[in-house]
C-alpha cells in the first residue's frame, strides 16, 4: 500500500516541510524539500530514523547521585525507550571519568553508552 508522510526537516533553520511517499518501506518519491540534504534526511526519517540517547544512571559513592550518559552514536529510534529502560535499572560506582564506557554494546545494537562527565568520589 502506498504510504505518504509529512516530514519537517531539521537540517537547517529553513525548516522545510515536505512529503515522502513509500510502498512497503521502499521510498518512491520525496517532494517539498529545497535541498538534497533535506531530501536525504526525510528519506532516512521514513526508512531508518535514528536518535541520540541522553539520560542518567544512578551512581553510588559519588559527589552527585546521578551520572549523565550519552550514546556514542545515534540509535534506531524504536530502540530509544528500551535502552532508557535498560539504563534505568543500572547503578554504578564512583569515580568515573567523562568518556568512560558505562554500558558496552547496549542491547546488542553495536553502540556504547558513555559517561558525559567526571564524577569524583565523596
Amino acid at each position: 500500500m502506498e504510504e505518504k508522510r509529512r516530514i519537517s526537516c531539521i537540517v537547517c533553520p529553513l525548516s522545510c516541510e515536505g512529503e515522502v511517499s513509500s510502498k512497503s518501506g521502499i521510498v518512491n518519491a520525496v517532494t517539498g524539500f529545497s535541498c538534497p540534504r533535506g531530501e536525504a534526511y526525510a528519506r532516512e526519517e521514513v526508512t531508518a530514523p535514528k536518535r541520540m540517547l541522553t539520560t542518567t544512571v544512578r551512581i553510588n559513592g559519588g559527589k552527585l547521585p546521578l551520572l549523565p550518559v550519552v550514546s556514542q552514536q545515534a540509535l534506531p529510534k524504536d530502540k530509544i525507550i528500551p535502552c532508557a529502560r535498560c539504563l534505568a535499572n543500572l547503578t554504578i560506582i564512583a569515580p568515573i571519568k567523562e568518556g568512560e564506557v558505562v554500558v558496552a554494546n547496549i542491547l546488542n545494537l553495536g553502540v556504547d553508552i558513555i559517561a558525559s562527565r567526571d564524577i569524583n568520589p565523596v
Binding site: T54, P68, R117
Partner: peptide, 10 residues
C-alpha cells in the same frame, strides 16, 4: 562536534 551540556562545561 556535538557535546552534551556537561561535556561542554567539562
Amino acid at each position: 562536534e556535538e557535546l552534551t551540556g556537561p561535556g561542554y562545561a567539562g
